[in-house]
Amino acid sequence: MLRVLAVDDEVPALEELAYLLRQDARVEHVSIAANGVTALQDMVQMIGAGERLDGVFLDIRMPGLDGFDLARLVGGFPSPPRLVFVTAHEECAVQAFELEAVDYLLKPVRAGRLAEAVRRLEAASAPPGANGADDVIPVELGGRTRFVPQQAVWFAEAKGDYVRLHTVDGSYLVRMSLAALERRWESSGFIRVHRSTLVSAKHVSELRYDGGRVLLTVGTETLTVSRRHTRQVREQLVRQFRADTPGVPR
């Protein structure tokens, strides 16, 4: 059961969001805050009292402390709650996901779409390895936003302040650090094989040795595993194989 906080400076929108959340059987408790400052104070108080907070449903454009500023502050908490942005502004999606948001809802919020956001929040809040959340990453393509599902990603490469996602359909550049992506997908079978490369274990079809190097076949690509990561990669791939193969001892 989830404990969440809804934040919006527009009272009718806040009341409607809280009402819809309370109708969801997966939501145990809903707190509300009418601005970013109050929300931050409430979260600090909850943490101080030892209360659990699983997620924050957060408007973006608010006076004073806006949603993005609040999200950055929340990210500094020891165990930050997951974020779901709820806004009328479609153009902010990429920035929201750079802040590791679980979902991005457009107003007016539909009950069915909110239920999907709650499902994603529930999956993201579960202990590592307890779910297979189908996370998505938004990428900008010629004025359009395309959502790339985690399941489609073969591997990701660090490119300065960006990450390039490689899929069967091509590659996409996203403004995000590889470390942030690794944290986000750590329970979904993604393995660090090099300081600049993160690989989806389920897309690895071969591991081989070549002149002292360890090579992986991932999709249609061949990647080199660094010496530092070789043992960990081998062990993690074996665990993945055992977990995915019925009848094989774990």
Score class of each variant (00 low, 15 high):
L2V: 06
R3S: 13
E10H: 15
P12C: 02
E15Q: 10
Y19L: 15
L20S: 04
L20R: 10
R22M: 12
R22A: 13
A25Y: 06
A25G: 12
R26F: 07
V27D: 08
H29D: 14
A34G: 11
G36N: 08
L40P: 02
L40Q: 10
L40E: 10
M46F: 14
M46V: 09
G48L: 13
E51H: 11
L53Y: 11
L53R: 04
G55A: 10
G55Y: 10
G55K: 14
I60G: 06
P63G: 07
G64S: 05
L65S: 08
A71W: 02
A71K: 03
V74T: 05
V74W: 09
F77E: 08
R82N: 11
L83F: 06
V84Y: 00
F85K: 01
T87V: 08
A88H: 05
E90I: 12
A93D: 02
A93Y: 02
Q95S: 15
F97E: 10
E98K: 05
E98D: 13
L99N: 09
E100C: 14
D103T: 10
L106D: 05
K107C: 07
K107Q: 08
A111R: 12
G112E: 13
G112R: 08
G112H: 04
A115T: 04
A115N: 04
E116Q: 15
R119C: 12
R120E: 14
A126S: 09
P127L: 00
P128D: 02
N131E: 15
N131I: 01
G132H: 08
D134Y: 03
D135T: 05
V136G: 03
V139A: 11
V139K: 11
V139F: 05
L141V: 13
L141Y: 10
T145P: 02
T145I: 12
F147W: 14
V148R: 08
Q150W: 09
Q150D: 13
Q150N: 14
V153K: 00
F155D: 00
F155N: 00
E157T: 11
G160R: 00
D161F: 05
D161N: 09
Y162H: 02
V163W: 01
R164D: 05
R164Y: 05
V168R: 09
S171Q: 14
S171H: 11
L173E: 07
L173A: 06
L173K: 09
V174D: 07
R175D: 13
M176V: 15
S177E: 07
A179G: 13
A179M: 14
A180I: 13
R183I: 11
R184L: 12
R184A: 12
W185P: 06
W185E: 02
S187C: 06
G189H: 01
F190I: 00
F190H: 02
R192M: 09
R195G: 03
S196V: 05
V199I: 01
A201T: 03
A201I: 05
V204E: 00
S205M: 07
E206T: 09
E206G: 01
L207S: 12
G211P: 09
G211N: 12
L215Q: 13
L216G: 00
T217E: 13
G219N: 00
T224K: 11
V225F: 04
S226R: 06
R228I: 07
H229Q: 14
T230H: 05
Q232A: 15
R239Y: 11
Q240I: 00
F241Q: 13
R242L: 06
R242W: 08
A243P: 04
T245S: 06
G247N: 06
V248H: 04
R250C: 08
